[in-house]
Simulated scan of single mutants.
Amino acid sequence: MLNLPKKVSIIEVGPRDGLQNEKLFVPTDIKKQFIAGLRKAGLQEMELTSFVSPKWVPQMGDAAEIVADCLDADARNIVLAPNRKGIDRVYSTDCQAVAVFVGVSNSFNLKNINKTTRESMKELKPIIYELKEKNYFVRACISTAFYCPYEGKIDESDSIKLCQEFVEAGVDELSVADTIGMAAPNESFSLFSQLKKHFTNTLLTAHFHDTRKLALANILASLQAGIDRFDTSAGGLGGCPFAPGAAGNAATEDVVYMLARMGIETGVDLNKLIEAIEVVRPHLSSQIESGYYRLHAQTG
């Protein structure tokens, strides 16, 4: 008998994680329409954009305008801010939920933000304390929790230790990522079982990339470990500029469809989700490859 929850929370990361690696600049108005469409589809938690240097991630150069026009008082609006400069930009907005990130792998962290994992944590801990004093929701994104494109397999205990540091710093949520899409279902079950055991009062979210077409299998394994929150990206958009070969995120529509077939509620309307994807699709440099989307495009 499968151990399944009655309901799963979907955290939509398409507007941020999904678009950050897109080669063509998606017009700001299209991004706004995309976000509005995702909201209409029933997605209540969303990564809207990130306050990062436009020099390194040009796609996010319109972050201030996106935040100014796309906040929803009835939803959790998350903005990624990787450092003090980004956090100070968040303070100038009405956004009340912030994501920070660190890679378990030193090599990945150095490639990504030019700091070791230790250096990143030294910088982030006082920022997290400050955010919590100001009553912000803080989400910690744990990159390369399973494998690194430069170092290979990551020791499970190293991922748990980094999560422990974030929990002790006071974060509300851990988003634990298979950044290069190399985890196998047994590895996902093992790590998330340990995280559930250790961090009973912290929101635990699984974040899978579909590089080797194992994202759905890993989500099923994570469900068995007691996880009921998943990061997904409409259209399977995504990738990472600093993780060579990493494909897009688990496609929201494929995940929602699978969960619906299993009798698990998500609150997401698939037809409206496809409508949202259609808004952004003409502005993408590559085709959308998700199974549910391709079937829908062929039949309707």
Results as ranks from 00 to 15, higher is better:
277 I>G: 12
194 Q>G: 07
195 L>M: 09
274 I>Y: 12
193 S>C: 08
278 E>H: 15
240 C>G: 07
277 I>W: 12
160 I>P: 03
275 E>W: 03
222 S>M: 06
240 C>R: 05
192 F>A: 07
267 G>N: 06
281 R>H: 15
178 D>F: 03
185 P>W: 03
192 F>V: 08
148 C>H: 13
279 V>H: 10
256 V>T: 05
229 R>E: 05
167 V>I: 03
196 K>G: 08
230 F>V: 01
177 A>L: 08
259 L>Q: 08
173 E>W: 00
277 I>K: 12
149 P>I: 03
280 V>F: 06
232 T>Q: 03
240 C>S: 08
287 Q>H: 14
246 A>W: 04
254 D>P: 01
162 L>H: 07
276 A>S: 14
288 I>H: 01
212 R>V: 10
245 G>Q: 01
230 F>I: 01
180 I>E: 04
283 H>D: 04
256 V>W: 05
281 R>F: 13
208 F>V: 10
249 N>F: 03
269 D>G: 10
155 D>L: 13
285 S>A: 15
225 A>Y: 01
271 N>A: 14
175 S>N: 13
171 V>L: 05
198 H>C: 14
222 S>H: 00
158 D>F: 13
164 Q>S: 12
269 D>W: 05
237 L>M: 14
163 C>A: 14
164 Q>M: 04
213 K>P: 08
281 R>A: 15
145 A>F: 10
276 A>F: 11
155 D>A: 14
184 A>I: 11
161 K>G: 07
264 I>F: 09
209 H>R: 13
173 E>N: 06
282 P>M: 04
247 A>Y: 09
212 R>L: 15
187 E>Q: 15
248 G>M: 09
286 S>P: 00
235 G>Q: 12
288 I>W: 01
242 F>P: 00
252 T>N: 05
203 L>P: 00
265 E>S: 14
191 L>F: 04
229 R>H: 10
270 L>R: 05
206 A>Q: 09
259 L>H: 06
148 C>E: 12
261 R>C: 13
201 N>Y: 13
146 F>H: 07
256 V>Y: 04
217 A>F: 03
232 T>H: 04
